[in-house]
Nucleic acid binder design. Structure first.
Lengths: 343, 343
DNA sequence: CTGTTAGCGCCTTCAC
DNA sequence: GTGAAGGCGCTAACAG
């Protein structure tokens, strides 16, 4: 592995000069610059980040903008954990994390937190843009040289180095496949949808419905997820669902709120999302048949790793990083709880 | 973060002395040693590996001892890939990998390769001890100060810093749960077992059988996996299986050879293991219903990471690291192929 | 037994 | 424009 000193020697200049052209700072005569660059290219020079980090005294700071951890049944807490372990792994590299949690149900919250994040002049942003319209509205506050990674859901025309998430459509289809296997005969299957802003959730619902229609004799019927997080609202929805469909055999809830429904519904097959505490309990008790998982922790970890790779190591990062669609039932649940972090 | 220099200052000694006690090299008076250690503890000193690596000129070398990558339908190649990406992530840290591939079907191969591995005086060993008896027989050749990580299967009384694998019993139960869901009525389910030396495979079979017996009305019947990898042998087994059981409704193959069976058997439900090429093709075509995955790549990566952590960073590593039991069907297969490494 | 010193490869400041 | 020099934190060799 060639070093900056080697280059200097070959070019017949000092390491200071080499450094200058490598970082595009200070003035260097065009001739020496060209000669240095050609050596760099020819010899395949890559900077030694270990040395670089040691010497470099500035810390790189990342702003994490995401919903309050407790929202969506603590789903976001899992993401946060992953970000944390990502930082852990980066060990002695000088990176700072600053969190900005917004209330996803409060219209103004995103703006407030986002502007706070802008103010710290971070080198990179890790954003979970659940409130799509808001995220798009303020995105121009991010400077060109600040890198962003979008996590969990993607946004069109949002300039970012990477999006980390899951293929929502296939995920819905996977749920449908399972549903079709576990129902004993055909009937009506209820599908929950959500407010349009959270569109990747609805894509799951679409994948589910299209699969069921194409591959089974069952019918699907759509119900809206209560906007207010009150038990009474869920009860109303469940009542309506059961009243309207005497032949109700299954329910698909494309997000973490499946446990609310599972608690009230017996004798039908239920498939939902996310290994949040409330859901895993229902899975264990048998009220929920399958949960799909989107590896929130892994998403967080990958997101941080990607920012680091792009900003600190100055390496390219894949524009899309889709994680596996994980299927969880009672029998393999334990193996997921441990998550490779046991004992 | 406190540095070695800070400690020296506080203790009123030179950094050389501090270094000596931290590395247990050279003689240091008991008093100064005690005082330094107390400061270390009190201030929570952790060595800066970035600086350490930069300064340290010796490379640490790991010996990887595993079956030939192409064996078991290229399963081991997946493990190897994981080890490789693990190394990739360790980037500029000076670690060397040396592979020693043994032929798992050749009695003497393990001994030969293992002795070669011993000869390089590695700092750590990453061993996949499929041939349990051999591995145990020669383990004493490893020195006390050499750390070992066992991957894929574990060995009793084998002194190792960590075992990385999967809970075989639960994995069998998970397969059984799926089988019980997809069969339409009861009948006979064939289960394949293997030579006893590969015992974790048979534990899967046991988990499967016990679940089926307890939770369904179906019967299970055991057949042995052909020792010789000839198509004719598989054909014989399949013939026997179908001839003996007119009501054959399902087949469980607890390892990667499921595709041989799937190719010949129609109209029954089939569950097997591992996302090797031959199997994923059968999953796509519908001949196999579910595959369980044991994250071979992740296993490899974790194993390398664990060695690194323990040897280079001198940090503790969990003794058991069990990975999730992953369920794959046609609909989520694509998401696993990408494996977060796409685009 | 203990202190000093010269690097590891890169970055930054200062002087010419 | 360019070079020289000091330092990041740790290691290892050398001198007492």
């Amino acid at each position: 592995m060639i070093t900056i000193k080697d280059i200097a020697e070959i070019a017949g200049v000092s390491i200071g000069t080499v450094d200058r052209v490598l970082h595009n700072r200070g003035r260097v005569s065009t001739t020496t610059k060209a000669s240095i660059l050609s050596i760099v290219k020819e010899k395949g020079y890559r900077k030694n980040i270990v040395a670089s980090q040691l010497s470099n005294n500035k810390r790189t700071v990342f702003a994490v903008i995401m919903p309050l951890p407790h929202q969506n049944d603590y789903f976001w807490d899992l993401i946060k954990e992953g970000i944390e372990t990502g930082k852990e792994k980066l060990g002695f590299f000088k990176i700072d994390l600053q969190y900005f949690f917004y209330d996803r149900f409060d219209k103004h919250s995103y703006e407030i937190e986002f502007k706070k994040a802008i103010a710290i002049h971070a080198d990179g942003f890790l954003i979970a843009p659940v409130v799509a319209d808001q995220a798009i509205k303020y995105k121009s506050l991010i400077r060109e040289d600040q890198k962003v990674v979008l996590i969990n859901s993607d946004l069109p025309n949002f300039s970012r180095i990477s999006h980390i998430g899951q293929n929502s459509y296939d995920s819905g289809r996977t749920a449908a496949k399972l549903m079709s296997q576990i129902i004993e005969e055909s009937g009506t299957i209820a599908v929950i949808e959500v407010e349009p802003e959270d569109y990747h959730i609805n894509i799951r619902a679409r994948g589910f419905k299209e699969y069921i229609r194409k591959n089974t004799d069952s019918t699907v019927k759509t119900y809206m997820l209560p906007v207010e997080n009150h038990l009474a609202e869920y009860e109303k929805t469940v009542e309506k669902m059961t009243y309207e469909n005497r032949d109700l055999i299954g329910l698909f809830v494309p997000n973490s709120s499946v446990h609310y429904f599972a608690e009230m519904l017996k004798d039908i097959k239920i498939i939902g999302y996310d290994l949040v505490e409330a859901n895993t309990r229902m899975l264990e008790s048998g009220n929920i048949d399958f949960l799909l998982n989107q590896q929130p922790a892994k998403q967080g970890e990958l997101a941080l790793e990607s920012l680091f790779k792009n900003i600190v190591l100055v390496e390219d990062v894949k524009e899309f990083q889709f994680l596996p669609i994980e299927i969880i039932c009672r029998e393999n649940l334990e193996s997921y709880k441990l998550g490779g972090k046991n004992e």
